[in-house]
Computed example of a mutant assay.
Amino acid sequence: MTPDGEPGTVLRVPPLHPGTHDAVAASYPTLDLPAEGREEFLARHGAEVVAIVCSNFSPVGADLIEALPRLGMIANFGVGYDNIDLAAALSRGIAVSNTPGVLDPAVAEHAIALLLAVRRQVVAADRYVQEGRWPRGPFPLTGQVAGSHVGILGLGRIGQAVATRVEALGATVSYHNRRPVPGVPYAYLPSPVALAAAVDSLIVVVPGGAATDGLVDAEVLDALGPDGVLVNVARGSVVDEQALVAALDSGRLGGAGLDVFRDEPRVPAALLGRDDVVLQPHTASGTVTTRAAMGALTLDNLAAWMRGEPLLTPIPETTG
């Protein structure tokens, strides 16, 4: 039952985590947005839908929102929400939730894994052994994280989780954020360029969206330098991929560990097969434990809205 006491349907917008997909149907009347024939589907069922459950990979644009006259809530499976046309939702007073906090350890862990993999050339060394090259000579010496200086671009929940793990590896941490974060022990740098110039490695953990599109550009990469390493576990849109390829090709950047890309799942061909790059298929939060916790929080937000109660984790822009 919806907050107004009238029956309504939850629309699942694929792709969704399988457990969450099934759990929605176990509690509510449910429909799935089809890949084909959406206009006809929405004309037939749009007036039934009161809530949407989606993921970071599920686009919820203004056209979909406008086709659902009773829509009152969007529950997003993921901490980022650049997949949702937030302006369209706000204009209708639609509540929107996400899943912050529960994925911080997994994403931070993945950022550290990428940093170590690039600095210690773990993937290249694996290929060296797998291809039988070791008997012909030792693998070249690598860099290390201990004793280095690591910059974190975006010191929110995940950024702070990354920072504590970087410190545990024996590295120094500095950061840039939209504004200084009170109470943290790390040096604040006034811009992404200034941060990149001061550190050996740069880990990107900012939100996606128009405000951060292309934030890591050629100037930032040049400031990071020929021995620098870039790690991106944020959004592919944050990094200028053409500038990144150019910096790697010219030796102006030392390496990169990338979990996200601008046009996923398509990865620029120029990034493939390189020993100075480690690539992942957007799996930073992809652990069994984390995805279960994300699903539970998604469903708890949906249940709270259905009862007419405040959302557990509303997106800040929707709270007024």
Results as ranks from 00 to 15, higher is better:
Ala197Gly: 11
Ile203Gln: 07
Thr289Ile: 12
Thr164Glu: 15
Ile203Cys: 10
Glu66Leu: 11
Leu271Met: 06
Leu64Trp: 03
Glu317Asp: 15
Pro15Ile: 07
Gly183Pro: 09
Val96Phe: 00
Val205Trp: 00
Ala269Arg: 15
His17Leu: 11
Gly183Tyr: 07
Ser237Leu: 05
Gly255Asp: 01
Val173Cys: 02
Leu11Pro: 01
Glu317Ile: 11
Leu155Asp: 03
Ala292Trp: 07
Leu230Asn: 00
Val24Trp: 04
Pro192Val: 05
Val122Gly: 10
Val49Lys: 10
Leu202Thr: 04
Val166Phe: 08
Thr313Cys: 11
Ser250Glu: 14
Val245Tyr: 02
Met1Thr: 14
Ile74Gly: 04
Arg38Ser: 13
Ala194Met: 07
Ala197Met: 10
Thr289Cys: 09
Val229Asn: 06
Ala23Gln: 11
Gly183Phe: 08
Val229Arg: 04
Pro14Leu: 13
Leu114Gly: 07
Thr172Ser: 14
Pro138Leu: 07
Leu312Ala: 11
Asp82Trp: 12
Asp222Ala: 15
Thr290Gln: 08
Arg179Leu: 10
Leu224Glu: 01
Ala194Lys: 08
Leu116Val: 15
Thr2Lys: 14
Leu221His: 05
Leu31Thr: 10
Tyr28Thr: 12
Leu155Ser: 06
Leu195Ile: 07
Ser250His: 12
Val107Ala: 06
Glu40Asn: 11
Ile112Asp: 04
Val150Ser: 02
Leu169Lys: 07
His21Cys: 13
Arg266Asn: 13
Leu71Ile: 01
Arg12Pro: 00
Gly209Asp: 02
Thr2Asn: 14
Leu141Phe: 11
Leu169Arg: 09
Arg38Met: 14
Arg38Leu: 12
Glu6Ser: 14
Gln121Val: 09
Leu116His: 03
His110Tyr: 09
Leu230Glu: 01
Gly255Phe: 03
Val181Lys: 04
Asn232Lys: 02
Tyr128His: 15
Ala117Tyr: 06
Glu109Gly: 02
Arg70Lys: 09
Leu253Gln: 03
Ala198Gly: 06
Asp82Gly: 10
Ala26Phe: 10
Ala218Met: 04
Thr319Val: 15
His176Val: 00
Leu16Ala: 00
Ala284Phe: 01
Ser148Lys: 13
Ala88Gly: 05
Val205Lys: 02
Gly143Asp: 08
Ser148Cys: 11
Val239Ile: 06
Asp126Lys: 13
Glu264Val: 14
Thr290Met: 06
Ala35Leu: 12
Arg274Tyr: 02
